[in-house]
Amino acid sequence: MDAQLADVEAGKRFYGELFGWTFEGAYGSSVWARLAGEPVASLAPKLDGRMPTVWTVSFATPDAQGLGRRIVAAGGQLVMAPFPVGDLGVAALAADPEGAVFGLWQAGGHHGFGRRHRPGSFVWAQLYTRDTAGANVFYGGLFHDALFGEGARPDFGRSEVTEVFPAEMPPHVLAHFRVADLDDALGAVQRLGGRVQAPPFEPSYGRVAVVTDNQGASFALLQR
């Protein structure tokens, strides 16, 4: 999972205080975010000011090229074809048939999360879609074993974008970070210059609020 930001130093200050992350150089101008010494995310500078300020969740795959072909065959698209990231692995950026963007990661020296499901780390990704049946077919066909196979631990769900959402909200994948106390975390977000997009609500997987950081990147906070 990585954030594309206009100001990585400002991102380090925001997330360092919010989640207790520390940082070290990763690849190029990007930095690893670590919690208790384990990698939990990365922050990267936007290469083009026209790019959105966003968090992107990546699915692990043993074959980014092959999965990219399957995505296109299933009606999705490759936003960025697979490319090497030094000796760390191979990355790609894809979109589902409705345009929701997600990443792919074929591990080399970097295998992904060192810590998750704990406060201050990734806990859930939620797809917001206007076509739930189509999403079931698309993601189920690509990632069936990971999402539904024996021993799979749920990390991913989907919700329908209904009339309660703004009409202009596009389908998207929303990254969730676990927090020990949601109200305290919301106070910290606002104190650090972020804002609350959606106040706390209670889906089946916990108590959630949607926020933006001090540069406009959206993410969710989840208390279980």
Score class of each variant (00 low, 15 high):
135 A>L: 07
2 D>V: 02
216 G>F: 04
79 V>A: 07
149 G>N: 13
201 F>P: 00
202 E>I: 00
103 G>A: 09
161 V>A: 09
211 V>R: 06
129 T>Y: 03
215 Q>H: 06
173 V>N: 12
156 F>R: 11
16 G>P: 09
139 Y>L: 04
189 V>Q: 05
60 A>P: 06
207 R>W: 12
119 P>L: 08
169 M>H: 02
119 P>T: 13
95 A>F: 03
214 N>V: 04
4 Q>F: 10
223 Q>V: 04
98 E>V: 00
45 P>W: 14
4 Q>D: 14
93 L>T: 11
104 L>E: 02
124 W>Y: 12
78 L>G: 03
61 T>Y: 04
75 G>K: 00
157 G>M: 02
21 W>H: 08
213 D>F: 09
148 F>G: 00
165 F>Q: 01
79 V>C: 00
125 A>D: 14
94 A>V: 06
97 P>A: 11
146 A>V: 05
58 S>D: 14
30 S>D: 12
168 E>L: 08
222 L>V: 09
63 D>V: 04
46 K>V: 14
144 H>F: 12
209 A>W: 03
56 T>Q: 07
205 Y>L: 05
73 A>F: 01
88 L>H: 10
196 V>K: 05
163 E>S: 13
197 Q>I: 15
122 F>W: 15
176 H>M: 07
101 V>Q: 15
117 H>R: 08
207 R>K: 14
117 H>Y: 06
26 A>I: 00
73 A>S: 13
165 F>K: 01
102 F>N: 01
121 S>N: 03
59 F>M: 14
167 A>Y: 00
110 H>T: 03
26 A>H: 15
9 E>S: 06
183 D>W: 01
186 L>E: 04
88 L>F: 07
48 D>R: 03
196 V>W: 05
203 P>E: 11
47 L>F: 09
40 V>H: 06
107 A>L: 01
190 Q>W: 02
15 Y>M: 09
23 F>P: 11
122 F>A: 11
96 D>K: 00
220 A>E: 15
51 M>Q: 15
207 R>I: 01
203 P>T: 05
194 G>Y: 03
10 A>Y: 10
215 Q>R: 09
97 P>F: 03
198 A>Q: 15
159 S>Y: 10
27 Y>I: 13
146 A>L: 14
90 V>F: 08
37 G>H: 13
214 N>M: 07
37 G>V: 07
114 G>N: 07
156 F>I: 05
27 Y>S: 11
197 Q>L: 15
194 G>A: 04
94 A>N: 08
147 L>I: 12
145 D>R: 10
26 A>G: 00
108 G>T: 02
174 L>G: 05
114 G>P: 12
199 P>W: 14
33 A>V: 09
63 D>I: 00
186 L>W: 06
223 Q>R: 06
167 A>F: 06
30 S>Q: 10
63 D>Y: 04
136 N>P: 00
197 Q>S: 13
160 E>I: 01
155 D>E: 10
174 L>A: 13
7 D>V: 05
113 F>H: 15
218 S>C: 08
25 G>C: 04
135 A>N: 10
164 V>L: 15
39 P>D: 07
202 E>H: 09
1 M>V: 09
184 D>E: 12
62 P>C: 00
211 V>H: 03
